[in-house]
Amino acid sequence: MRHLIDILDLTCEEIDELLDTADSIIENPAAYATRCAGKKLATLFFEPSTRTRLSFEAAMYELGGHVIGFSDAANSSSSKGESVSDTVRVVGSYADIIAMRHFKEGAPMVAAMKSTVPIINAGDGGHNHPTQTLTDLLTIRREKGRLDNLTVGFCGDLKFGRTVHSLISALSRYEGIRFVLVSPKELQVPDYIKDLLTEKELSFIETTDLESTLPEMDILYMTRVQKERFFNEEDYLRLRDSYILTPEKMRLAKQTLSVLHPLPRVNEISVEVDDDPRACYFRQAKNGKFVRMALICKLLEV
């Protein structure tokens, strides 16, 4: 039995297989419409997250399966003090697979240690969010036709953005990736990510200047400055508006640039950019459902 707790649980070959399955689902969804008939997915969302939960639920319904679960810890037994281990042992007797989001970092790993059914980490605090990374990888591969030899820019909150850390880790395994890390000084990537890049002798630059580095990028991964990560409203407001992607800035970029964003956005990409064909973030959100369908099939071995 396999779980998905960290994107690095999957080899590059396994990721390729998952993305191939996702491509196949996109091309021929009818072939997968009953793949999970008679199976149940439990969505255990101890922390609210509408889009990730709906994406999982839509994925399971489109595979012909059923969904049970809760979307808020207040409606779960954890509000009565039940441990994660006990919860998954009980839910595992009702469902065939579990997607879990938890505000405590490492909770899905603890769940996997005790569970009798596969666990998918649907986000644990500021730590991992591997299905978002699969979504990002599928989007890059569909937009660019490859996952290697790309200059990938990350912009915004690179310190607290778990999607950024996971995607950098995942891409660091492919040949010829060059990273351009654009952020205010206060929101630079953590040292352990820089250590990883240095250790693997990968090319990366850190800068505060988006305009001068934008022309070299093949991918621009924008992120939201998350209010909930700040103790101080003043710092949040100052940093929130550090980088706003506008049509004027897009003129500096390659015609082949792909702009990604894990969503939700606040104001870091102006709505005028949405009509630019290089804006991929809504296609990216849609890809999330397909790659989750592929993942559910893989973990259920159907």
Partner: peptide
């Protein structure tokens, strides 16, 4: 020491 770590709440870990 991470206050958001599961070890701060899960018994028996």
């Amino acid at each position: 020491k991470n206050p958001r770590c599961i070890t701060t709440v899960e018994p028996g870990l």
